[in-house]
Write a protein that binds this DNA or RNA. Sequence first.
DNA 1: ATTTTAGGTAAGTACATACTTACGGTAAGT
DNA 2: ACTTACCGTAAGTATGTACTTACCTAAAAT
Lengths: 111, 111
Amino acid sequence: MANLNGIESDACGAIFVALADPTRRKLFETLTRGPRSVGDLARTLPVSRPAVSQHLRHLSDAGLVQSTRKGTRNIYAARQEGVEVLRRYLESLWGDVLTAFADKIDQENLK
Amino acid sequence: MANLNGIESDACGAIFVALADPTRRKLFETLTRGPRSVGDLARTLPVSRPAVSQHLRHLSDAGLVQSTRKGTRNIYAARQEGVEVLRRYLESLWGDVLTAFADKIDQENLK
DNA sequence: ATTTTAGGTAAGTACATACTTACGGTAAGT
DNA sequence: ACTTACCGTAAGTATGTACTTACCTAAAAT
């Protein structure tokens, strides 16, 4: 108990998948420092622009970024909510790890 | 600035990859609630025991779990440090997102 | 109006990976 | 000693995925 897994686990599954790829993680880290256009992002990476578009789509589906058209350019920005979802999930795990660790200590002391 | 990325990013890359797989995430969530043997873990999942062994190896390589032999059984347990590494990484990102958001607000106000 | 600029999508390919069964190896039970 | 329980590894396979080039649309510039 003291854990509501299964609810957010699926929600942040897409987030873990998104951040598992090094290129996408680099993209997201760049976007956390401020909004950028697709072309700007592509120039900072050793992959083609279409590849960046595909990665950004994954990040967008995971709820980590959002985009707004500005003329011919598409400006992407990091969403705060995405990181918070992951943080909440980690905190629930962290609590469980601590209680499990306490139980382990107790178990050791009984021996 | 106010960010030391690139150092922990690679370190938690393996963690993201490990938790990106739903089976491994389920395994880790189970282990956060207490230590289990490989066989016990396998019985709670719709995959074979060797598959569980391979997943546990990935989790172990990522620093998320550790194992200790107990007779013929291998007991796996979640490591606290693994979750903390990820939490620190997220906090650094979270800080950047907030400052970036503040900059965006300022930028909007100037228009 | 035509030409750039910016970017998403389609199709194809090479590689990664999650699974299976088969096997080997160690410790406990009889 | 021999069987049984428990588990890791090897080999093979099938699907997933990250990349490329080619193509198409939409808005700005000339």
